[in-house]
Amino acid sequence: HMTFVALYDYVASGETDLSFKKGERLQIVNNTEGDWWLAHSLTTGRTGYISSNYVAPSD
C-alpha cells in the first residue's frame, strides 16, 4: 500500500469519511475511484474515505 501524509486537518462530513489531522500518516487502500480515496490511518487505526487533495506522498 502507498503511504501518504495529511497536509491539512480534515473533519469527516459523513459516516464513510475519515477524519484526520495534519501530519497524520495514511495508507491508501483504494485510489481508483476518482478524487475520494479509501484510506487507513496509521495513527488512529480507522478506515474511511479521504479527499486526495488533502494528502501528499510521504516518500
Rank of each mutant, 00 (worst) to 15 (best):
F20L: 06
A12S: 09
T32C: 11
A56W: 09
T44M: 02
G23W: 05
G34H: 08
A6I: 02
I28C: 11
L38T: 03
A56K: 11
H40D: 01
T16C: 15
T16G: 14
D35P: 09
A56I: 14
P57S: 08
T44R: 01
L42G: 02
H1P: 13
N53G: 11
L7C: 10
E33C: 14
G45W: 03
D59G: 12
E15R: 08
K22Q: 08
L42Q: 05
G23I: 03
F20I: 05
L38M: 07
G34F: 06
K22S: 06
L38C: 11
P57G: 07
S19L: 06
I28V: 11
G45R: 05
L38H: 02
V29A: 06
G14V: 13
N31R: 14
F4R: 02
S51M: 15
F4M: 09
S51Q: 15
R46H: 07
T3D: 06
S52K: 15
H40Y: 15
L7H: 02
T47A: 05
R46L: 12
K22V: 07
L18N: 01
V55M: 06
G45Q: 05
Y49V: 04
A56E: 10
Q27T: 11
E33P: 07
Y54A: 15
N30G: 15
T3H: 10
W36S: 08
I50H: 00
D35C: 13
E33A: 12
D59A: 15
W36D: 04
L7F: 04
D9V: 04
L18Y: 02
A6P: 00
S13R: 14
T43P: 01
A39F: 05
K21D: 05
H1K: 12
N30M: 10
P57T: 08
F4E: 00
Q27I: 15
P57K: 09
K22D: 01
Q27V: 15
S41H: 05
E24W: 13
A6C: 08
S41T: 02
T32S: 12
L7M: 08
R25A: 08
H40V: 15
R25T: 13
G48F: 05
Y54T: 06
S19M: 05
V5T: 08
I28Q: 14
G48M: 04
D17C: 15
N53V: 13
H1V: 13
T44W: 03
D59C: 14
S41C: 04
F4T: 02
N31L: 12
N31C: 15
Y8F: 12
D35R: 09
H1I: 13
G23D: 04
L7S: 02
V5D: 03
E24S: 01
A6M: 04
L38P: 01
A39L: 03
S58R: 06
Y49T: 03
L7G: 02
W36N: 07
A12L: 02
G23R: 01
W37M: 06
Q27D: 06
S52I: 10
M2C: 14
S58V: 15
S51L: 15
V11M: 10
V29W: 13
K21C: 14
L38V: 06
E15H: 10
E33L: 13
T16A: 12
F20N: 00
S41A: 02
Y49K: 05
N31A: 13
D35I: 10
W37L: 07
Y54V: 07
S13L: 12
A39H: 00
Y49R: 07
I50F: 01
A39M: 13
H1F: 14
R46E: 07
V55Y: 05
D35L: 10
E15K: 11
I28M: 06
T3E: 12
V5H: 04
